[in-house]
Design a protein around this nucleic acid. Structure first.
Lengths: 223, 223, 223, 223
DNA sequence: TATGAATGAGCCTTCATTCAT
DNA sequence: CATGAATGAAGGCTCATTCAT
C-alpha cells in the first residue's frame, strides 16, 4: 500500500485494453464485496475478471490502486438519486435536510457492502482515511453554513456553535446509516428518514411541523 | 495427517508466569497502539515484553487472543471516571445525560488509540463486531428506556419512536467522539459535552435551560 | 479470522509448467528415498528440483500430496516386468505362481527404498494404510480364488480355508521380500523365488515336481 | 533421537523417585498407544503421569529413551503365555510349532497397538530397526535349527535350504499376525493358529495328521 | 527431586510482484 | 497486450530441551 512505484501502468491504448481494464475494476469490486479488502487476493480479482494473474499488473500497480478506482466509481453513483416529492412536505428549510438525508441514505444502502470495506481500509490506510475525512468535512461545512444561515434568520438556537452542531448532526446521520445498513440493525427506511430529519430540526431548535408519519404514508413510501 | 489436539495455553501457575503473561498483554497493547492490529507481529509483542517469541505461545494461541485480553482490560478502565459537578448544573433529567456523555468521552479519549484499533478489528472479525455492536445496543436500550420515561412525563416529543431516537442519539455521540479523538478533529472538550447534551435534549423536545457556557466556565473546566 | 478458500493448486497450463511439476515429483522421490518421508523438507524437494520453495506450492499443497503422486508413479512401474522362461519349467498351476512371485519381487527390488517409505507413511497415515491394505487384499482375493480352483480340481488340501490360506501365503511372500530388500537380508534372488514357490505349493498340498535348482541354473539366473 | 546426550539421568535414588519413574513409563505407553510415537509429546506423557513437564527430564533424556523402556517392558510380557493343551494334539514335531505360533500370536494380540508403534519407530530409527531385526533373526535361527533337525530325521523336504525356509515361515506367521491384529483383518484366532501350523508343516513337507478343527473344538478354545 | 516457565531451532505457508514467452 | 510460471520476503507455529526456584 505504500510500496515505491516501479512501473506505472499506462492508460490502455487499445479498445481491447480498455475493456480488460474495466472488467478488472468490476471484478475487483465483486471480490472486495465478497472477501473484504484484506482477504481479497490479486489472483482472485484476475480470475473473477477472466484474466490471467499477470494481466492485473498491466493496469494496476497494487491492490490499493484498483481499490481507489472502485471507490471513484462509487462517487458517480451519487447522481442516480432521484428527488422524492414526499420530502417537500416539510416546511421550507427542512425540505432540503430531508432530501439530503434521504439521498445519503439511499446511496449508502445501495453500496452498503463497499461502504463497509471503505471503513475497513480507512482503519489502516492514511490515504483512504484522508479521503473519507475530507468527505465528512465537506458535509460538515455545508451543514455549518446552513446553520449559520438559519441562525441569522432567527429560526435556530443561536447558542450553538455552528461547526460543533454540524459535526454532531453529520455524525448522527452517518453513524445511524452505518448501523442500519452495515451493522444490520433492522430499521425501517422511511421512519428513519423522518426521525433523523425531525431530530435534526429540533436539535437546532428549528420549529417546523413535520409531515405526518402515518401508516398510509409509510405504505406508500417504503420499499 | 495426525492427531488433532486442542493445545490450549493454560493459566500461569506461578507468580512469575502471571507476571510474564501480564507483561505480554501490556506489550501487546503498546504494539497494537503503535502498529495497529494488522501490522502487529507476534514477534514484536514478545520482543516488547522482553521475551522470546515462543513465550507468547505459552500464554496465547493467536494475536486475536491477546487482543481480546487487551480489550477486556479496557472495560475495567470505565470505572475510573469521576463524576464532574459541572454536569449537575443541568436541570433534572439532563444532568444524567451530561454525566453519561462526559464519562463516555473521557474514557474514549483516554483509550482513543485502542478504540481506533477496535474499529479496525471489527471491520474484519465477526466476534469483535458482535462485541462492539452489543455494546452499542446496550447504550441504545438504556437511552430508549430513558426516552420512554421522559415521554411518559410529558417532557419529550411523543411522536418519536424511542428506539429510533435512541439509536440516533447514540450514533451522534459515539461518532462525534470518534471524529474528535480518532480522526483528530480539533474540538474543545467542554464545549463538545455541552453541545452534545444541549442538542440531545432539544432533539427529544426536552426543554431545559442549560448551564451557561461562558469563557470563565471554560477556563475552569477544560483541560 | 477470515474467509477460508480452498487454494487448490491447478494443473499446469503450459509445457514449462508441466516440466517443472514433473521435476518436482522426481525430486520428491529422490528426497524421500534419501531422507524418508518424515525428514523430507519441502524446501529440500524444491531445491533438489532447482526451484524456489514457493514453486512447490504452485503445484502441491502438502508433502503428502507429492508423496501420493510419487506412489502413483510407482504403480506404472509394475508393467515393466518381463516374463521369465525359467518360471515355465514348473508344472502347470505352479508356473503362474512362480511368475507372480518373481514379478512381485522384481518390482519390489527395483523400488525397495520407496517401498520402505510407503511402510513408514502407512504407520501414521490412514489414507496410505488403506491404499496398502487394499492392495494386499487384492492379492489375497486373487490367491484365494486360485486356491478354490485348485481345491476343486482335487489338487490341493481341501481342509484349508481358502481365504486364510491365501492370507498366509501373501503374508509369507510379501514379508520375505521386505526382509530381503528393505531389511537387507542377504539372500539370493533365484533361490528365494524357487523356495517361496516350492513352499507355496506344498503348503497347499499341491504335489508338483519343481524345476531343478542346481548351481548351473543359479549361475545362469542370479544377478 | 540422535541427539548428543548432555546429562544422563541417573537411576532414581529414592523410593518416591522410582515411583515417579514408573508412572512415567506407564503414561508413556498410554500416550504412545493413543497417539503413536510421532505425535506423542513429552508434555502429554508428563501430564498423563500427573507430573510436571520438566520432571520427565529427571529420568529420561528423550522420547526415544522412554520408548526403549516401554518396549523393554513388553518383553517381560512374553512369559505370561500359558501353554495350551490343545496344541499337544498335533503329532510330535508339530506340537512345538503350534505352541510357538500360539504363544507369538497371543502376545502380539495383547500388545497389538504397541507392536504397531514399534513398526512405526522401526521405519525411521536405526536402533529400533536393529532390535526388531535381531528378534526376527532369533526366530529364524531357531526355526532353521528345527528344520535341520527334521530334515535329518528324514521327515522334511531336504531340497529346501533351512535358512530360506525358516525365513519364509517366520515371515508368514509374523505378517499374518500383523494383518490380523494391526491391520484389523477379521480372522478367527483358533482357525488362524490351526491354518498356520498346518501350512507350516506341509510347506516343509512334514506329513502329520492335524487335530480336528470342528465347531465343538472351536467353542472350547476360542475366546 | 519436582516444578513449570522460557527459549529458539526448525519448518511451514502465503501471495504480491516480476518476467520470459 | 496477455499469459501464467517463478520467486522469496515475511511471518506463523511447535515442541524438545534447559534452567532457576
Amino acid at each position: 500500500m505504500t510500496a515505491i512505484l516501479a512501473r506505472v501502468p499506462e492508460r490502455p491504448a487499445t479498445k481491447r485494453g480498455a475493456e480488460t481494464r474495466r472488467s478488472l475494476v468490476c471484478a475487483a469490486r465483486a471480490v472486495f464485496e465478497r472477501d473484504g479488502f484484506l482477504d481479497a487476493r490479486i489472483t482472485d480479482i484476475a480470475k473473477e475478471a477472466g484474466a490471467a494473474h499477470g494481466t492485473f499488473y498491466t493496469y494496476f500497480r497494487t491492490k490499493g490502486d484498483v481499490f481507489r478506482e472502485v471507490v471513484r466509481s462509487l462517487e458517480e453513483d451519487r447522481e442516480h438519486v432521484q428527488p422524492n416529492p414526499i420530502d417537500d412536505l416539510w416546511p421550507k428549510p427542512l425540505a432540503a435536510v430531508a432530501r439530503a438525508n434521504r439521498a445519503y441514505m439511499e446511496t449508502y444502502r445501495r453500496n452498503a457492502r463497499m461502504m463497509a470495506i471503505i471503513e475497513q481500509v480507512a482503519t489502516f490506510n492514511d490515504e483512504m482515511r484522508a479521503i473519507r475525512h475530507e468527505r465528512t468535512l465537506g458535509f460538515v461545512r455545508k451543514v455549518a453554513a446552513m446553520i449559520v444561515r438559519v441562525q441569522a434568520e432567527g429560526l435556530a438556537d443561536t447558542r450553538l456553535d455552528p461547526y460543533y452542531a454540524a459535526t454532531a448532526l453529520t455524525a448522527m446521520v452517518s453513524r445511524f446509516t452505518y448501523l442500519m445498513f452495515v451493522q444490520g440493525e433492522d430499521l425501517e427506511f422511511e421512519k428513519a428518514v423522518w426521525t433523523l430529519t425531525r431530530m435534526w430540526a429540533s436539535a437546532l431548535g428549528i420549529d417546523g411541523s413535520p409531515p405526518p408519519l402515518n401508516s398510509k404514508a409509510r405504505l406508500q413510501w417504503s420499499e
